[in-house]
Nucleic acid binder design. Structure first.
Lengths: 196, 196
DNA sequence: TCTTCAAGCGGGACATGGTTCCGTTTGCTC
DNA sequence: GAGCAAACGGAACCATGTCCCGCTTGAAGA
């Protein structure tokens, strides 16, 4: 998946060296700005930090969603891979589900504004929704099905809905010391328990 | 609390008739626009609908929060008053809590964008946060304390945190048929149950 | 190495939406 | 009906996302 790769099938010329360098510089700058100003930081700020023009950002990342995805891709993939691993090592599927959700929450609450962006109905974030859901819903479904199969939880909840709910609970979790998203998500997960 | 009232203590001249009329017109226009375009609709749209200039909005409602509060004040107060009533008429405090939360959720999910505005960290919404929390947290505390006192639920959750959590779960509930905020809030409330 | 040229670049131009300012209008009081 | 302060409307201003255009430069071939 490198920039120099040929497209599947016919040859595409590799990107110029300066373009590749700029892309890396932009990713670093964006990551830094996201930490301090959140994922909705002005495009010009990111461009300034990277020392490039604004158009260069749009050239490499047509929408803000593309930039956010590129910055956080590794961490999302780590979360995806943690799902089956937790299922294999936890004492029950429900325990695995709980731990996996914790992982996801920890990721979200430390990314200023990301949870809100995930919920934004701005069309520019469509790719962001799609990416997160495409990657995480299948994992969550697996965990949910396992926990339902073992009889620990109710089975009438879609992974999609749970992911959205957890994401929503994480909105604004930073910047409000009186609000603990982890605790509330814990309560939500507790609410999944099948009343025996 | 009418506009023509004198301020507490020394005499303040009543507002001019046209000003009072404009304020009413603006409230009606805002209510209509909020329904169709959400509470973040452009100021100019609201002004146009009311047939006034934009400055007139700012004169009557310095921040968007003031306008939103004025539009929804009655419904929020109805919710406030429903709390003790439910507590008096329900079979258990926990049942009352559940029904009161349902009321709040029904209110939020039918107000396009309101839940999101409640969570926005935009300074212009400070008054909105303050109003909602000032009015609703005491009622929720009462219900929570009653349910904790009867031993039905855990007692380590502040009303503030619960209100924020419920509000968050309602974000984007319209405009997403696959997401049912009521169901998730129900699960959250179920999660409050004390494991006996 | 030198030439050529398209990929890539920067910053200015434009659109949108919030906010403020100012000259004009208008209700109220005398 | 005159005077005046309240209130008004809309233009002006600012911030930010997005797009365009003329210039620069990496790199392929002579």
């Amino acid at each position: 998946m490198n920039d120099g790769d040929r497209g599947a099938g016919h040859a595409a010329r590799p990107k110029r060296a300066d373009a590749r360098r700029n892309k890396e510089t932009l990713l670093d700058a964006a990551a830094a700005i996201f930490v301090t100003s959140g994922v909705e930081a002005p495009v010009r700020d990111i461009a300034a930090k990277a020392g490039v023009g604004t158009a260069t950002i749009y050239r490499h990342f047509p929408t803000r969603a593309d930039l956010i995805i590129a910055v956080y891709r590794h961490q999302v993939e780590a979360c995806v891979e943690a799902g089956p691993a937790l299922l294999a090592t936890s004492v029950t599927p429900y325990a695995a589900l709980g731990r996996w959700i914790d992982l996801f929450v920890d990721f979200l609450v430390t990314k200023h504004g990301l949870a809100a962006a995930l919920r934004s109905d701005d069309a520019g974030f469509d790719a962001l929704h799609a990416y997160f859901l495409d990657r995480l819903v299948p994992v969550c479904t697996e965990l949910l099905d396992a926990a339902a199969g073992s009889g620990e939880i109710r089975s009438d909840l879609e992974a999609y809905e749970l992911m959205r709910g957890v994401g929503n609970l994480c909105i604004g979790a930073d910047s409000d010391p009186r609000y603990d998203a982890r605790r509330l998500v814990g309560i939500l997960i507790a609410g999944l328990r099948r009343p025996h």
